[in-house]
Design a protein around this nucleic acid. Structure first.
Ligand SMILES: [Zn+2]
Ligand SMILES: [Zn+2]
Ligand SMILES: [Zn+2]
Ligand SMILES: [Zn+2]
Lengths: 154, 154
DNA sequence: TCCGCGACCGATACTGTATAACATATCGTC
DNA sequence: GACGATATGTTATACAGTATCGGTCGCGGA
């Protein structure tokens, strides 16, 4: 069991420090989007996030949410889950400068996401790329399935 | 250099045999969608495929294309490229019964896709899944970058 | 002081992706 | 012919993402 309020507070404090240190503007909208993703602790669609913002008077149009998400992704606070067209707060190395290569375990029932750092290089994909003269710029690994909680609940 | 007409004909013949053997209905729409993807030899959006079908009088509404793609994916003739929300004909083990785990090298310039079979098990993602009690049902690996042709063209 | 500039936000409108729901057609079986 | 299973036609709508314009605010320089 984990103290989720504390978990959120710490993550927000870390983000705050990182932004201050690097001269990034963690504006109210951006801050709140990150907070929402940390609170939910699961993958959320852009329009679901937008609904929250709207309810709180922080912007009601798609570009508001997408701009905030772009900022948060660019600086490593949030990841995009391609298989869901959704977004999740980084739990592994949030805001790390070297954009780490994350792998995701995505529960198809509760949409909670387990993030892991995966190695690059040496895999079959990298071998094939080298053999074909293909220059990899960005790789993703995502696995769908069911988390421990949802399995025991069934 | 490869004889693309022959490449398509062989792939279609294989698909035909497989469907006959397994009692699957390779109907005109399904057949044509597979053929289009083989001809193009790159990732295509559902609506791009639909435009072709429409021009040929084979159906004009989104569900027509999506249903054909669902059939072709279900039986391993076509793969979905999650990072592009697009579809590509399987070139590795088309129609193989055991749904193989494909990895994709996706050129961001020409949208051509290199498919490779990647191993499952032993990777960090699998290790993390085992540790967390997460049951992986479906894993994907996609890498974006630039193919050899597009790199030498630049 | 005033101006220009850049960063952010607000809003409209649009494109693109995907599915729900219901109607129709076709075919082999009883 | 009635029936169930399968496939297709059609309408409507939900969900995802972008282009573009305009406004505001803070800040540095003429
Ligand atoms: Zn991360
Ligand atoms: Zn779950
Ligand atoms: Zn070919
Ligand atoms: Zn290319």
């Amino acid at each position: 069991m984990h103290d989720h309020d504390l978990c959120i507070a710490e993550a927000m404090a870390r983000a705050q420090r990182r932004c201050r240190a690097d001269g990034l503007h963690l504006t109210p909208v951006r801050r709140r989007v990150l907070e929402i993703l940390l609170e939910e602790h699961r993958a959320m669609g852009a329009y679901e996030i937008l609904d929250r913002l709207r309810a709180e008077g922080l912007g009601s149009q798609p570009p508001v949410a997408y701009r905030a998400l772009d900022f948060l992704m660019k600086h490593g606070f949030v990841h995009r889950i391609e298989t869901l067209n959704a977004f999740v707060a980084c739990t592994e190395r949030p805001g790390s400068a070297d954009s780490h290569v994350p792998g995701f375990l995505i529960c198809r029932t509760c949409r909670r996401v387990i993030e892991t750092c995966v190695d690059t290089g040496g895999g079959r994909l990298e071998t094939a790329a080298a053999g074909a003269g293909f220059a990899i710029e960005h790789a993703i690994r995502e696995a769908a399935g069911r988390c421990a909680d949802c399995r025991s609940a069934a």
